[in-house]
Simulated scan of single mutants.
Amino acid sequence: MKVAVYGQKFCEKNIPYLNQFIGYVSSHSIEIYIEKSFLNILSSFKEFKNLDFPVFSHHKELTKDFSLMFTFGGDGTILSAITLIRDSGIPIVGVNTGNLGFLASFNKDVFIEKIDQIFNKKLHIMPRSLLSLKTSVTDHHKFYNFALNEIVILRKETVSMITIDAYIDNEFLTSYWADGLIVSTPTGSTGYSLSCGGPIISPENKNFVLTPISPHNLFSRPLIISDHQKILLKIHSRVKSYSLSMDTRLTYLNQDDKLYIQKAPFYIYLIQEEKNTYYKTLREKLLWGMDQRN
């Protein structure tokens, strides 16, 4: 068996957990490949000074014979990891060493207790849909055309609102006059979209949601559409450019650049401890239903 390990940062208090993980895979003759930049971070700690594992730094190196990728961090680490995973189908085991841990569902304190079940594939693999983007921009370094959480259009270098003409399957929907617009997957519905008044959509639903950001209209509300539908966005602004973000990646486009958004042709697969943990996560992480009166 061959596994990949990825992270973006590391702190001393998490050394025991990673040490136990490395000890386990070594004792079970499991091949471990560590992302190059993450290995450099680990090498700054004396406990990992002499780590001698093969590395990877490009998505083409993550071939289909990898069984799993382990991410050490939070949800942002998983969002960054999918730029390497892409359409390989390699399942992700998210070990939460960060704060919220909505996607990184394995708490570091109990992660080692479940490691036999993880490697024996006795847990649950949950597919998550993604958004795909097409535009005239092709030369932005390290900007990938897919997103697990959301695609966000925002005004740039102006305090004035922008106008976003939205079309669904080539039919005109409306013109959003707002600070921006969020196009979110069910996975991303608990992120930026939620903070802007968007609905929570459980991951098994085949939907996307369009959520305006600070619209100057009392009746501009989030809209849920089928993920089989295609979205076209045209942006109008008092300045020449606007901001575009996809998950954790940010770039800038000219207002002449149209955006074509649809469902990506592949899924990201997340390993979960239990089959039905989504609503439990809502209660524990987002305090769903919490009331001091009860």
Rank of each mutant, 00 (worst) to 15 (best):
residue 96 N to T: 03
residue 169 D to F: 05
residue 33 Y to V: 14
residue 21 F to H: 09
residue 220 S to W: 04
residue 34 I to D: 06
residue 105 S to V: 07
residue 96 N to S: 07
residue 121 K to S: 15
residue 130 L to H: 07
residue 102 F to G: 04
residue 16 P to G: 00
residue 97 T to P: 03
residue 182 I to C: 08
residue 166 A to S: 15
residue 68 L to H: 08
residue 282 L to K: 04
residue 36 K to G: 01
residue 229 Q to W: 03
residue 233 L to R: 02
residue 288 W to E: 06
residue 62 L to V: 04
residue 243 S to W: 00
residue 264 A to C: 11
residue 82 I to P: 05
residue 182 I to T: 07
residue 45 F to C: 02
residue 111 F to C: 07
residue 64 K to N: 10
residue 164 I to H: 03
residue 123 L to K: 09
residue 222 P to F: 09
residue 186 P to Q: 07
residue 52 D to W: 14
residue 229 Q to F: 04
residue 125 I to E: 15
residue 266 F to D: 08
residue 250 L to G: 01
residue 92 I to R: 00
residue 159 V to C: 09
residue 271 I to Y: 06
residue 48 F to T: 02
residue 180 G to F: 02
residue 147 A to G: 05
residue 66 F to V: 10
residue 144 Y to M: 02
residue 114 K to N: 14
residue 64 K to H: 13
residue 195 S to V: 06
residue 55 V to F: 05
residue 270 L to M: 10
residue 195 S to G: 05
residue 163 T to W: 11
residue 117 Q to K: 15
residue 14 N to F: 12
residue 87 D to N: 15
residue 68 L to K: 09
residue 112 I to Y: 14
residue 97 T to S: 13
residue 182 I to S: 03
residue 184 S to H: 06
residue 156 K to I: 12
residue 232 L to G: 07
residue 267 Y to N: 15
residue 217 N to D: 08
residue 15 I to V: 15
residue 141 H to L: 13
residue 246 M to A: 04
residue 195 S to Y: 10
residue 115 I to Y: 02
residue 32 I to H: 03
residue 103 L to Q: 04
residue 199 P to W: 10
residue 24 Y to H: 08
